[in-house]
Amino acid sequence: MKKLVAGIALISLIAGVSVNNVSAEEYEVEKGDSLWKIAQEFDTTINEIIEINDLEETVIFPEQKLQIYEEYEVRKGDTLYGIGKKYDVSVDELMEWNELSSDLIVIGQVLSIVTTSDEAEIRAASTVSEDGVASNVEPEGKTISVSATAYTAECDGCSGITYTGINLNENRNAKVIAVDPSVIPLGTEVYVEGYGYAIAGDIGSAIKGNRIDIHLPTKKEALEWGVRTVNVTIMNE
């Protein structure tokens, strides 16, 4: 698992300055990154990155700063066992995440905390505006023409969980499309004509080649969408 350096803030404690005991590690978005890709690289979840950064959309941009893991700053009386109980993780996990050779910790030491998907299920963030356009920035990337159908998590026997783990029942307004990964890579941010910014977060047995399936909140909306030929811009390409 890729790690960032966790520092030790002893000076603040010695000086008696009050510090927040929870912070987060920072990552600078690079060209070609997606929330899915970053979550996989850092062994975390899309949901965790969204929640830590208070994101209202799944589209990210180069040089954007994202917080990755929660961190815990060790206080007087803390032990790895006690911290593990607080976050429902084991001592061994804390030692592995922080590359510790023993269970000895010191006041002011910053420990990475990787929240599991059991504690916070993966979800997709809805976009800001009604048509799904998250900002006034023109979509940039490779544009292809596709045949677009629609689906919904509101159906009997549907789990509502996408192939990449996004919980559509938790957020019915999530902008997610099913794709053929050989055409549009999973986790890619896209702009779909008539739908808005979305994330390629699902697949389907009938979704092959230049075809997509967009997620809509209700059966009525999915039926109204029907089948359309639209342009899709694959961001960062």
Rank of each mutant, 00 (worst) to 15 (best):
E30L: 14
S112T: 14
T143N: 02
T45D: 07
E193C: 00
S145H: 02
Y191V: 09
K175N: 09
I107H: 11
G196T: 01
T152P: 00
S90E: 03
V106W: 10
K37V: 14
L66H: 02
N236P: 09
A124P: 06
V89K: 03
V110Q: 12
E41H: 13
L100Y: 08
T149F: 03
S12K: 15
E224C: 03
Y81M: 04
L35A: 11
D180G: 13
L100G: 05
I46K: 07
K3Q: 12
L186A: 05
K219C: 03
A6G: 13
K31P: 05
G160C: 04
L35K: 03
P181M: 12
L94G: 02
A148Q: 06
P62V: 11
V232G: 00
K3W: 07
E99L: 11
T115Y: 09
V227K: 05
S34Q: 12
V183G: 00
E56K: 14
T152A: 02
I207A: 00
G84P: 01
G132N: 01
G82K: 08
F42C: 09
T149N: 02
H215S: 08
I49A: 02
I11T: 15
W97F: 07
I212T: 00
W225Y: 08
L223N: 08
I49H: 00
H215P: 03
N210T: 09
D118T: 09
V17T: 15
E140L: 12
I212Y: 00
V227S: 05
N53I: 01
E73L: 10
I107L: 14
D88C: 03
S205W: 11
E41L: 15
T218D: 01
G32A: 13
A24M: 05
K37G: 14
A174R: 01
T58P: 05
K2S: 11
E140K: 11
P62H: 08
L55F: 09
Y72T: 08
G77L: 08
D156L: 07
P139V: 10
E28V: 15
T143P: 00
L4C: 10
K2I: 13
I161K: 06
A15N: 14
E154M: 06
S102L: 07
V227L: 09
T233H: 03
E70P: 08
Y72S: 06
A125K: 02
N136A: 10
Q40I: 12
E99I: 12
G84F: 04
Y72A: 10
A148N: 05
T45A: 11
N236D: 15
V227I: 10
E73H: 05
